[in-house]
């Protein structure tokens, strides 16, 4: 589990190095993203010693846990969660954008699902891999979660 802690340390390192307006995100338990979906609880950054591998940070199969388990967090940040990647855009409030996918898609649940499955169809040369090998239901769940990130 200290590996996950390592990831947090890695993120913290990045925050420090790129010191930005996000410092508050390091504050334990500070809820940054206004998540509309009631089930979603942001992960509380904890000290490595007390972190317990079996403690659920999120119910399995939920949008956030699918987002994290499939590695979206390696490229995207959602504030208040373990996801702190910086290669793709920050998705903390992606549900409230006027358009997504470099502006070519409307901000709807369905558009999120289509983009995540095959981003290359909407933006040639995109640096995000396609996730169309995931079951459609999982893509839908992730899309619903993203749309709810206001």
């Amino acid at each position: 589990m200290s590996a996950n802690a390592g990831l947090l340390v890695g993120c913290a390192f990045w925050f420090l190095a790129h010191g930005s307006s996000w410092v508050a995100a390091e504050e334990p338990g500070h809820r940054q993203a206004k998540v509309v979906e009631p089930l979603i609880e942001p992960m509380i950054p904890d000290t490595p010693q007390s972190s317990n591998p079996t403690a659920p940070q999120d119910s399995p199969g939920s949008g956030l846990s699918l987002f994290l388990s499939n590695g979206c967090g390696a490229c995207h940040t959602i504030r208040g969660t373990e996801a702190c990647g910086t290669i793709g855009p920050d998705l903390s409030h992606v549900g409230s954008r006027s358009a997504i996918g470099a502006g070519v898609l409307p901000n709807t649940e369905e558009a999120f699902a289509r983009f995540v499955a095959r981003p290359d169809l909407f933006k040639p040369g995109v640096k995000m891999p396609a996730f169309d090998m995931l079951p459609q239901t999982e893509i839908q769940t992730i899309a619903r979660y993203l749309k709810a990130l206001q």
Partner: peptide, 10 residues
């Protein structure tokens, strides 16, 4: 280059 741990650890 994304963080490897984001997919491979945990």
């Amino acid at each position: 280059v994304p963080a490897c741990d984001g997919c491979h650890i945990g």
